[in-house]
Amino acid sequence: PIVAGWMQYYGRFYRSALYPLLMRINAYLVRWLRNKYRRFRAMRKAIAAFQRAAKRRPGMFAQWRWTSSPSLAW
């Protein structure tokens, strides 16, 4: 609900500033996935699993409505 609130409030007037933040949240999710599941320790496998999950259930997380790719620069 907090991320959805940010998207709703800040998305009205400065939507482009939210994209790096949302991709950073996705990067944190990929990092969590890599630490939790041994079979996804490799970055390539973790990103593929993340993108499959985002495609299969786009409403699972609020930020997936706008972006479903993780930022790997963080």
Rank of each mutant, 00 (worst) to 15 (best):
A53S: 13
W6K: 01
F40S: 06
A73Y: 10
M7P: 00
M23C: 13
W74Y: 14
S69M: 07
G5S: 05
L18N: 01
I47Y: 03
R12D: 05
A73C: 10
S68C: 08
W66L: 15
A48I: 08
W64L: 13
P1N: 11
V30K: 03
P20G: 06
L29E: 11
Q51E: 15
R39M: 12
G59Y: 11
R31T: 11
Y28P: 00
P20N: 03
W32S: 13
A54S: 14
R44F: 04
I2L: 15
K55R: 12
A73M: 06
S16E: 14
I47W: 07
A54K: 06
V3K: 01
Q8R: 10
A42H: 09
A4W: 06
M60L: 14
R12P: 00
L21K: 05
I47R: 13
R44H: 08
R12L: 09
P58R: 12
Q51K: 15
Y9H: 02
R52W: 14
R12F: 06
R52I: 02
R34W: 06
M7S: 00
A54M: 13
R24H: 10
R34A: 07
R44I: 07
K45T: 11
G5R: 08
R57C: 14
M23F: 02
I2T: 07
G11N: 01
V30H: 04
L18E: 03
S71L: 12
R34L: 05
M23G: 08
S69K: 13
I2V: 13
Y19H: 03
Q51H: 11
A49Y: 09
S68H: 14
N35D: 05
Y37D: 07
M43H: 07
S71A: 15
K55C: 09
A54I: 02
Y19G: 00
P20L: 05
W6V: 03
A4N: 02
A27D: 03
G59K: 14
N26E: 11
P20E: 05
M60R: 15
S71E: 03
A49I: 02
I25Q: 02
V3R: 05
R52K: 11
R24A: 14
L29M: 11
R12Y: 06
F13G: 01
K36S: 13
M7N: 00
Y19P: 00
R65Y: 06
F61D: 00
